[in-house]
Amino acid sequence: MNLFIQLLLNGVVAGSVYALVAVGFALIFGATSHFHIAHAAVFSGAGYLAVIATQNLGLPGGVAAAVGLILAVLLGVALVRFLYTPLGRRGGQGFVLFLVSLGALVVVDNLFTINLGARPAQLSLGGWFHRAIPMGSWSMTVGQVALVAITVVAFTALLLVLTKTRAGKLITAYSGNPEFVEIVGRRPQRVLVLVYAAGSLFAALAGLYVAADTGMQPGLGETFFIISIMAVFIGGIGSVTGAFIAAMALGVLQNVLLMRIDAEWTLPVIFVLFLVLITVSPAGLSGLKLTSRRRPA
């Protein structure tokens, strides 16, 4: 039982990382229908940039983290401003935007690898980060608790912004409502930038945590990213809440599974689960909600 609780706690931590990336992607994908695969570059980029800030600029951990965060958000905004929007204006078909995003991801990721090498890029925030907080027979580190707290706060703040503010309601109107887009016309630039900035902020937070925790590595970004993306699609396109819940669930599942199987098999299991879930409920978790009201077409 003790092991189970500990794994549960670990799962919530992992789930928080996935949830941050997933919510960011869900926000962007929901509002633009664009498969912004370069989101993974924003995630890993935040960590890498913070590490470079400490190594090359000698900045203290906290400041470097802030620098990494800001630069990563700027990266996300730059992608939409300088790559996606100009291409979109030329009437590029869907594949053009996807490929340019893929290209950007590959360039950014490899530039970091060239710069930092294949060893993990470790961000040192200070001894406090890894200090354990004993909770009876279990424990979490200060960093882990901070992560979970930040995740919950950030997500709640996002929900408030989406439902209460004008900008937020506009973004929600775009999500999953292609008819709205047709009536209103192409999404205004300001909304786009806002959406990408917000989404990138979430991903950057996750990336900073990973860099501070185990260090950022080339392959690691992929693994975190793909689980987060599966969560977005399991949760239902256009639903940030669905993405959050699914991501948390996958994080917990991945860790609890360790009671039965080896670590390297958790990802294949999650993949099979993903395939089963999208077969059973193509609209994702939000599609499972049965209401008697008529659903939009």
């Binding site: 869907g94 396109i237 990802l267 294949p268 993949f271 395939l275 999208i278 077969t279």
Partner: peptide, 29 residues
Amino acid sequence: AVPALRVSGDYFIVASFALQIVASSVFSN
């Protein structure tokens, strides 16, 4: 393909990306 294409091309991108990462992991482990 079978589960993903029931829905849309985006699901297929996810499924294929996931398959790629899982396969790499399986080949190594």
